[in-house]
Simulated assay, not measured.
Amino acid sequence: MSDENSTPKQQEPPRLPATGTLLVDAQDRVGEFRGVMGSRWALRPVRGGVEWEVEPEEVRPATPEQRLRYATARKNARSRGDVL
């Protein structure tokens, strides 16, 4: 027997991360959170480049290993003089 008067549980929107937080999208791309664009979030490659948009529900925080890997890549890029 179902309760016809019950309302479906609404999922709370994901919490807004701090700018620069490393996130992984559904395609396993790692990017820095840059901000909100409408209902979507903007991520930017760690080494610089074109931002892309993702649905907030389709991202997860980067693992400690991924954060270390990308911190190292960023430092290496800066040491080469790459523009980030």
Rank of each mutant, 00 (worst) to 15 (best):
V83W: 09
S39M: 01
L68I: 10
W52T: 13
V30C: 12
G48E: 00
Y70V: 11
T21V: 11
P14D: 04
V30D: 05
L43D: 04
V50L: 14
S39Q: 01
D82P: 06
G31K: 02
R34N: 02
M37Q: 13
W52E: 12
V54P: 05
W41E: 01
E51A: 12
R78P: 01
E65F: 09
A73K: 02
Q10V: 09
R78F: 00
R78V: 03
S6P: 03
A18C: 06
V50W: 06
N76T: 14
T72Q: 09
G20T: 14
P56F: 10
L68T: 10
V54S: 05
S79M: 15
K75N: 14
L22T: 07
G81W: 00
P64G: 06
R74T: 04
R40W: 03
A73H: 02
A62Y: 00
E57M: 12
N5S: 09
T7W: 14
Q27W: 13
G49D: 06
G20S: 12
R34K: 06
G35C: 05
N5P: 06
P64D: 13
T72P: 00
Q10N: 06
S39P: 00
D28Y: 07
M1Y: 01
V54F: 02
P14H: 01
R29T: 08
P13R: 00
K9A: 12
G20Q: 09
S2C: 03
A62L: 04
S6Y: 02
D28P: 05
F33W: 04
V36L: 10
A42M: 04
K9Q: 04
E58F: 10
E53L: 15
V83E: 13
R60Y: 04
G38Y: 07
A62I: 02
V36K: 15
L68W: 09
R60W: 03
L23R: 02
M37S: 14
L84G: 10
P64L: 01
V83Y: 08
P61A: 11
D3Q: 14
W52R: 05
Q66M: 04
L43K: 04
Q10Y: 02
R40H: 10
R60V: 06
R15C: 02
E58Q: 15
P17Y: 08
A42T: 11
V50R: 15
N5R: 04
D28A: 12
A71V: 06
G31W: 02
L16W: 05
D28R: 12
M1E: 09
S2T: 13
R40L: 09
Q11C: 04
M1D: 04
W52A: 11
